[in-house]
Design a protein around this nucleic acid. Structure first.
Lengths: 155, 155
DNA sequence: GTGTTAAAGTGAGGGCCCTCACTAATTCGT
DNA sequence: ACGAATTAGTGAGGGCCCTCACTTTAACAC
């Protein structure tokens, strides 16, 4: 309704807008997460990690790094913290003794469903102004960034 | 073509996708910026700050924080660094002796146009797979996040 | 078997961002 | 004139992410 002004939309503008929106969302996300009454106080980042491990049941460090889109160094850091907090466990991979498999602890597993529900609720409120059609469109457009980059978002 | 599976798209999925896309873009952005042959080696963040100051000619710290969408504390940090590097200058505000005005140095001003051009080039390559229509749509959709939040993206 | 490759981890250093708490100077309303 | 609000800054602490360099342990191919 107001975006058809010039012939070619400024690429820079769009990139900045995307970055800005992401920053905004991340902030809101953390605030809402912190306001929750979950037994665990998890950041968005740790929530994502935990849910990724959960959805894979068991997963390697390296694989996790790929799924999360971060460097292995970062995963080590995060896993250390979550292990300290008793939410994650490192177990030996029987098929490859170099590898480490990750698994949720009982404590974490028990809470998964409530974490997922709460996450969904937060995301819902973040997308409150979007119609179903707009959501579908946005999803479609954002996916373009990963065209041909073999990503899976099974989380 | 593959996004119309379920009735309501999962809000969580979209939020994660957006965050992931932003992270991806930020990484690529920094890589491309580092590969430039600009006289200054600027991060995306500092580039943004500099251009925001430039577009306002002169601006207050607090105002800058709002435009960048970050906390004042962060602006102080960034400005300190850019001032150290001789790209930014703090000057006194004649109208309000509490306030500080920011201004680009000559050195920075001279490079602004080339910085803008390079930024546009990077953004262009980041959006390489997007048609003009998709760009317009994406811009429109991302703007929804800021509905009723009085933002200006004059940068 | 020996050399290459892969998996995980470590330490150091840094960027960008946040919160909280507190100071100092100034402006402004009453 | 005085107290409240505003503007900027500081220090401490922390989260998440990155790079680079280097080690250890194992798998694998020849």
């Amino acid at each position: 309704m107001a975006g058809q002004d010039s012939s070619g939309p400024q690429a820079t503008e769009i990139v900045q807008l995307l970055l800005r929106a992401a920053h905004y969302i991340q902030q809101e996300y953390e605030v809402l997460l912190a306001a929750s009454e979950q037994p665990f106080q998890l950041s968005g980042s740790r929530t994502r990690l935990l849910l990724t491990v959960w959805s894979a049941d068991t997963i390697r460090m390296s694989e996790l790094a790929v799924k999360l889109g971060v460097r292995p160094r970062t995963v080590t850091e995060q896993v250390d913290a979550l292990e300290r907090d008793g939410l994650l466990r490192r177990i030996a991979d029987p098929n490859d003794r170099r590898a480490t498999l990750l698994q949720l602890t009982e404590e974490a597993s028990c809470q998964v469903h409530s974490i997922i529900a709460y996450q969904a609720q937060i995301s819902e409120s973040l997308l409150g102004d979007f119609t179903p059609q707009q959501r579908a469109d946005l999803k479609e457009l954002l996916s373009i960034f990963f065209n041909g980059k073999e990503m899976d978002f099974t989380c």
